[in-house]
Simulated scan of single mutants.
Amino acid sequence: MIRRFLRRTLATLSLLVATLPIGAAATAAPALSLPRPTGPYAVGTTWLHLTDPTRADPWRPEVRRELMVSLWYPARPGTGPAAPYTTAAVSSRIVAAEGLPLPPDVLTTVATNARRDVPVRAPAGRGWPLVVLSPGFSLSRESLTGLAEDLAARGYVVAGVDHPYEARGVEFPDGRVAECLACELSGVLPRVVEGRAADVSFLLDRLTGDRPAWRGARYLDRHRIAVVGHSIGGASAAHLLTTDRRVDAAADLDGTLFVPVAAARPLLLVGADRPADASWVRDWPGLTGWKRWLAVAGSGHMSFTDRPVLGAQLGLDPGAIPADRQLLITREYVAAFLDVHLRRRDRALLDGPSPAFPEVTRTY
């Protein structure tokens, strides 16, 4: 199912780019940027490279499992260097994989709203809640930057995880690039879900353990943790409710549950505009805690990522919902879910139809 959605999206992008003047897209691209976050805090970001010495990589068993992580966080007011969206190596692989006549480094030109390696803002009371983001299959961590920046501006520390060999490209600090080995295999999606859950659990060890890998970890509240994912990242977020007791809540953004889920902790399911996912119907009775199933009319599989926003700036048709609004819907509903379950705030947005967002309906 994931590959079908990706093929459909890439075919649409290629068709639309073909309507541009010959040579125009290959030589220049419009200025690209992400919408400003809606929260009150300035946003900082930093990158981590982590190696799990206890686990072999599931796609390259001869090496230990490595992760690249972006952390977004509430930052102290002030100035600092603008944070890059991604690296030239990753950008070139995404452009090549999608077959678009764009400059290979086009994604390095995306203007973000975060400053790199600036100090973390100290929380007024308890530590900042932690949210882990896992991207879709073949996508990398930058694809959820628009959501991550917004959550950080609202007072969450956000850790976006790259899962090497499951994305078109993951670049390590020494210049090595992990290509998507899993993309060439069939029947591996349950294995991907389980491996990603192990990746996130290792990341939680390194952020909340006695010797954290990030100096800003002292500002974290280790007892308020959620995982949010897109596509197969959402499936792995849901799976973590059954494998890691530290995860208090999970949100699945249009991800088929390739591994069955039965859990008593909160789970939010947000689906694109299409018939109900059979795996969600299958597992719904076994979700015995707080649960919501929302559908977004006019949306597609990539609506929960940065792709519609950046695509629209390149002249591509975002579909039935304006691109910036697609991101706004994702930001508002994910933030409401996290506010309810990590901050114990009442957010009526999740309880029924909202005149502000008529596209969103509650399925169950």
Rank of each mutant, 00 (worst) to 15 (best):
L67H: 13
P129W: 03
P35K: 03
H301T: 07
P123A: 13
R65P: 06
S299C: 11
Y85W: 05
S91V: 05
S186A: 11
L342K: 10
R325C: 07
Y156F: 15
A29H: 13
L67M: 10
C180F: 05
P53H: 09
A11W: 11
V131H: 02
P40T: 04
A335R: 06
A24Q: 02
A312Y: 02
F304G: 05
P275R: 12
A11M: 11
R362Y: 00
L204M: 05
R55E: 05
L203V: 08
P212T: 12
A152E: 05
R126L: 11
Y165N: 15
A18T: 06
L207Y: 01
P35F: 01
V120F: 06
R211D: 07
G23I: 00
R36K: 13
M1L: 10
R215G: 05
T330R: 08
E66M: 13
V17I: 07
T288V: 15
P84Y: 11
W280H: 15
D57F: 10
I232E: 13
V340Y: 05
T45G: 04
A356V: 10
T288A: 14
D57T: 06
A312C: 00
Y85P: 01
E332I: 05
R8H: 00
M302G: 00
A336Q: 10
H301W: 06
T45I: 03
A97M: 09
A42G: 08
G127L: 14
G78H: 12
A272R: 13
P135H: 14
G155Y: 14
E62F: 03
T46V: 12
G80D: 03
D174A: 13
L327S: 07
D317K: 02
R76Q: 10
W128I: 04
L327D: 04
D205A: 04
V247Q: 11
S138R: 10
R347G: 03
T87I: 04
P74M: 05
L100N: 02
V309H: 00
A238I: 00
D162G: 14
V296H: 11
G125L: 07
L50A: 04
D174H: 15
D248V: 04
W284C: 01
V261I: 14
D57Q: 09
R246P: 12
R282Q: 02
L257C: 13
V259M: 13
G315P: 08
G169I: 12
Y73Q: 02
R211V: 08
P40F: 09
A197C: 07
A312K: 04
L287P: 07
A75N: 09
T108H: 08
D105F: 03
